[in-house]
Design a protein around this nucleic acid. Structure first.
Lengths: 321, 321
DNA sequence: CTCGAGTCTGAACATCCGTTCACATCGTGA
DNA sequence: TCACGATGTGAACGGATGTTCAGACTCGAG
């Protein structure tokens, strides 16, 4: 519960600190609060947006690497964030901030946008500050995991994105993975599922996380057995996008898992003109470079270490020394 | 000289710190800069406005005191800033921030505004971020001091204010104090002086600093002899507005000094509907309370200690114990 | 070339800030 | 009544930030 009195305190304290330059201790003295309390109030003020910090500059810290990536892989654009603390808890923050910038760059050209399953996509949406002029339609491109509600579900990401930009979200009432291929077939046949996926396939833009196979998507762990993972790797899978696995050539890895997926196929995704892929951290470099090389994504959001790693790979696919 | 490369650095560093949350040390490592350099770059970025920090709240830290002031003296509005470090170098900052808020509140209703001599007014203008819809005319209400150019001259304050709000400034080519009453008379007769002062007298709003007689306006020190100050005090002067001194009843203190002033008279000022007075610090309490009591100003900008002091004075003028 | 004024730099220090932890308080349900 | 979790609080610590100072550099004048 946020009362008016608390809001007022936020404003007062924020003013005294950010406009008048008083220290936390001075503010505490003035308003009879402990210094720690002032610190907390200020943190809250930043978190809730009472205090807004804007950088008026279009400089990217890694402009050189971004343009190198774009040239090398023929991308529409590339967005790079720092690697400090990537993999730790700071990661979603930094990758999300940059992902939000990428979204803001893509959104003006998209009337209909499809979103995939990924914590990185969720983080990007969380950092987005953008209001669309037109009514954007946001569609999940795959079903959702069951169990405890998580903000990394396509359905919830779609909802959050729609809320953030003032558009409308569509619901895909289906699991990401059905328990059997037959069940999947049945679910795909449901009118509401079919219609939503069809609409997603016709989207102007796609926003997905690119996953790896190693510590692969915790998200999938619950639904895919270790044996199935084994089988996927044996078939050459190097990564996935919303449970659609691909090999080193970017070709779909079909089989037991693929048959159970409720969502767009890789082919369908490739037909969407703007394809934003988000991936950060060392374990995602191979899937990322594959997605870039094979054109699965044409807008990339990643961290500087991964970007450099991808750029230093030999140009020709088979040119391994 | 600010080069593009430096601007670019400002933006990059600011992004990394304020958006991605890297520490100064981390940024230094990343961009091969010393930690201290990063600190300096960030300070520069804030100073130049590359980084903008906004508080989205209309809460004033001292709303209670402000409304008490307004009620007690029948003011249009009151604006109070913290007293920490007042008198020291932080003063202009804090008083200026609050003064700027007051200006922003007044400007929408003023098509023509007259400004007086005061470092406090200059500081307020320096902190102003405001763009006027209409073409505001800014007029100096008194002449300028000679000697080294100072940003506390009415003329320069007028120019700065006009620049800040996108209006036009008028020039008053005259000294604040002529050397003799006769010289003053002559100067006042000059067409361009007469016209500008006449226009200033017809302004919608007035912004002045309220000065004291003790450590009185360093600004005046050079032009007014100690003997003249003595005489002013003997005649009951308690303070001044742009070299127009007044006594405890708010009545003009005429005499040798007054005769030499090139600028609006107190009577002329009182005829301007909106009269903003800025004064901070202990030595200005008496002049401030007098200006408030006698209605010389009807919008006040001051610090919390002064505000409290003024409010605890007995209500009746002559009710001294 | 030499000197000096001005500017820039990073080491060292002093302060400020954020986080963690142990404790107090309150409300809730057994 | 007590037990217990949820929430809120400030002391204390460690890292982050800002400032000061002495030395290095640049540039122009003599």
């Amino acid at each position: 519960m946020r009362t008016n009195a608390q809001d007022a305190l936020l404003g007062k304290v924020a003013r005294l600190h950010y406009e008048h330059g008083l220290t936390h201790a001075e503010i505490g003295e003035l308003l009879s609060l402990s210094r720690v309390k002032v610190t907390r109030v200020l943190a809250e003020a930043r978190r809730t947006g009472v205090v807004e910090i804007t950088v008026h500059s279009d400089e990217s810290p890694f402009a050189d690497v971004e343009s190198a990536l774009a040239r090398r892989f023929g991308l529409l654009s590339a967005h790079v964030c720092p690697s400090f603390g990537l993999g730790e808890e700071r990661s979603p923050g930094s990758l999300g901030v940059t992902g939000a910038a990428a979204l803001a760059a893509v959104l003006p050209h998209a009337g209909r946008i499809a979103v995939g399953l990924s914590t990185a996509v969720a983080a990007s949406v969380a950092h987005l500050r953008y209001t669309s002029d037109e009514a954007v339609e946001v569609l999940p491109l795959a079903g959702s995991r069951g169990g405890r509600s998580s903000d990394a579900n396509p359905h919830e990401v779609a909802g959050a994105l729609a809320r953030a930009i003032g558009g409308t979200a569509y619901h895909l009432p289906a699991p990401l993975l059905a328990t059997t291929p037959e069940a999947a077939q049945t679910i795909r046949g449901l009118e509401e599922v079919r219609a939503t996926l069809e609409a997603a396939a016709a989207a102007d833009a796609l926003v997905v996380g690119v996953g790896g196979t190693v510590r692969a998507a915790q998200a999938l762990r619950r639904s895919v057995t270790e044996a199935e993972f084994e089988a996927l790797r044996d078939l050459g899978a190097v990564g996935d996008v919303s449970a659609r696995f691909f090999d080193a050539d970017g070709a779909p890895v079909l089989g037991a898992v693929d048959d159970r997926v409720i969502g767009l196929t890789l082919e369908q995704m490739r037909r969407i003109p703007t394809r934003v892929g988000i991936a950060g951290g060392a374990e995602k470099r191979l899937p990322l470079s594959t997605a870039l090389r094979t054109g699965l994504v044409n807008v990339v959001v990643t961290d500087i270490d991964s970007a450099r790693a991808v750029l230093t790979e030999p140009v020709a696919t088979t040119a391994t020394a």
